[in-house]
Amino acid sequence: MPVMNIIQAVNSALDGALAADEDVFVFGEDVGRFGGVFRATDGLQAKHGENRVFDTPLSEAGIIGTAIGMAIYGLKPVPEIQFSDFIYPAFDQIVNEMAKFRYRSGGQYPCGVTVRTPFGGGIRGGHYHSQSPEAYFAHTAGLKVVVPSDPYTAKGLLLTAIDDPDPVIFLEPKRIYRAARAEVPEEPYRLPFAAAVDREGEHVSIITYGAVLHEAREAADLLAENDISAEIIDVRSLVPLDEETILASVRKTGRVVIVHEAARTCGYGAELAALIAEKALMHLEAPILRVTGYDTPFPYTLEQQYLPDALKIFEACETTVDF
């Protein structure tokens, strides 16, 4: 089985989807001839033609709006927004049009757009090339929000997203685009929009998604050296949320540390904490802790201070275990 990084896995997923279904279209800024600024669409235009893989003007609202039009006609558009920080000109199209289409047409029009967009910090991109906007979209009824954490999940979840009849915001963890490598089948395969137990443990559940899953693994290694056994849950799908996998882990360990890069206030971790408080309170042995970004714009120079790292996760796990 070939070893791929996330870029190659995304490329492989798109290649397979384009080959298998002529209703699939891939487009965005620099996506066609240039092959994408991160090279995720490299070679796809040459292989599948300029009608299937094409460049757009620098017009995010227009990109998403035309994707909606194609989708309600019945096609399967997969637009790329070059950085998730650039998605806001299209926020109106996503929140007011894409998310509500099925609902306000009384079920007549599904809107099967898959919006691919790189997100997250750690590459010294500063304020406008580093943000984690998942909570805005998870808060918007009518959207699915999916976050892979490695090449294997990137390909499998992306193919599920493209098949999905409803709109999916597919957030790709760009910091580990090339760093994360794994065996990935060449053939198309699909992963469910469900959480996975990334590592089994007994004493504390680290619930996370995206690039920081890898920091959680590092923290779990450090904890193991201190005789603390951490279980890691890779959420993968924020909407729909696989409650049972999460709650089963909480019932087992009784201790929870939620980790994400996005700012803490009203971050997705708040929703997870509320879920656990509502449905597993009596299983908790300690307060739920969060290791998140700060409530600041994404910093330029101080990004390593801002980001969750293994040590911060380790300390939070120790705190909850010692409670």
């Binding site: 803490r264 206030t265 307060p287 700060y294 600041t296 714009p297």
Partner: peptide, 22 residues
Amino acid sequence: DLTRYVLVEDDPYVHGGPSKGG
């Protein structure tokens, strides 16, 4: 200075980051 310049200097806004627990 990680949490500076978000709002006016003496604003009591909570600045996120790792929570300390109850």
